[in-house]
């Protein structure tokens, strides 16, 4: 049985009297590739942020790698790619390499020094992401796609067991998008890295994800692609022409 990496138990989040999320329970295991879909305002981003302790839960619990969030400290095992970065300054004084290096984490936070093998791994990741030539560039000077690759590299450099991606491809052109998904897919297949992906990108989601959660303030559907195709929720989300919209990874569509 693969290890449970992420577990939400009866998670409930409210701002004042407004429910954002209610009764959320699900699990993510090693090797999973989970796509979270749902309409705008359904709480997808809040869910992923709650999983990381960035939003406090009103009630319920989240466990990362079997530990309650409050005690969790093994952040090197978790890779996170937020939807939007808070830095908006194009002159932010950080090179691509400096940002990626922040992904090497010990119990105090980003490591002050990295050893030779970590330095080699850093090179590998930069090469694999195709940004090795940009390593000395300021992060703010890169294109949207290059920035996204740099941030993915930061999330990957610590060899995470779980990768949480919050609409990672909204800023990307279709070609770069394909590329990005290919890299994520490869990680999932080769290293068994569990992926949790929030997306609006309905074209691709069926092509890569093995499992779906349809979220609208609560989990309305949780199951495989085939089950998802057969479900009423899918029709309500994707509309009448859903059979043309969503493809399975073997090329079949609903």
């Amino acid at each position: 049985m693969p290890m449970i990496l992420l577990q939400a138990e009866e998670l409930h989040i409210a701002y004042g009297s407004t429910d954002i999320l209610r009764d959320i329970s699900f699990q993510v295991r090693t090797g999973d590739y989970l796509g979270i879909v749902g309409p705008n305002g359904s709480g997808k981003s809040t869910l992923i942020r709650a999983m990381l302790g960035l939003v406090p839960a009103t009630s319920g619990a989240v466990r990362l790698l079997g530990q309650p969030l409050a005690q969790f400290s093994d952040w090197q095992k978790i890779g996170y790619l937020p939807q939007r970065l808070s830095f908006a300054n194009p002159h932010f004084p950080a090179t691509v390499e400096e940002i990626v290096r922040l992904g090497f984490i010990d119990k105090h936070g980003p490591k002050r020094r990295i050893d030779a093998s970590e330095a080699r791994h850093l090179e590998e990741i930069l090469t694999r992401m195709g940004i090795i030539d940009l390593r000395q560039q300021l992060i703010g000077h890169l294109s949207g796609g290059q920035q996204q690759r740099a941030l993915l590299a930061r999330a990957l450099v610590g060899r995470p067991a779980l990768l949480l991606l919050d609409e990672p491809t909204t800023a990307l052109d279709p070609e770069t998008r394909e590329d990005f998904y290919a890299i994520v897919k490869e990680l999932n297949r080769e290293l068994g890295t569990a992926i949790v992906l929030i997306t609006h990108d309905t074209w691709n989601i069926g092509q890569y994800a093995k499992r779906f959660v349809y979220l609208d303030k609560t989990v309305i559907f949780d199951g495989t692609f085939a089950e998802f195709c057969a479900s009423a929720e899918m029709t309500s989300f994707f509309g009448e022409h859903s059979n043309k919209t969503i493809y399975h990874h073997h090329g079949e569509h609903c």
Partner: peptide
């Protein structure tokens, strides 16, 4: 790290 992005900093421990 905090100046770069507070959420990323928090998920770096």
């Amino acid at each position: 790290a905090v100046a770069f992005d507070e959420d990323l900093a928090r998920t770096s421990g």
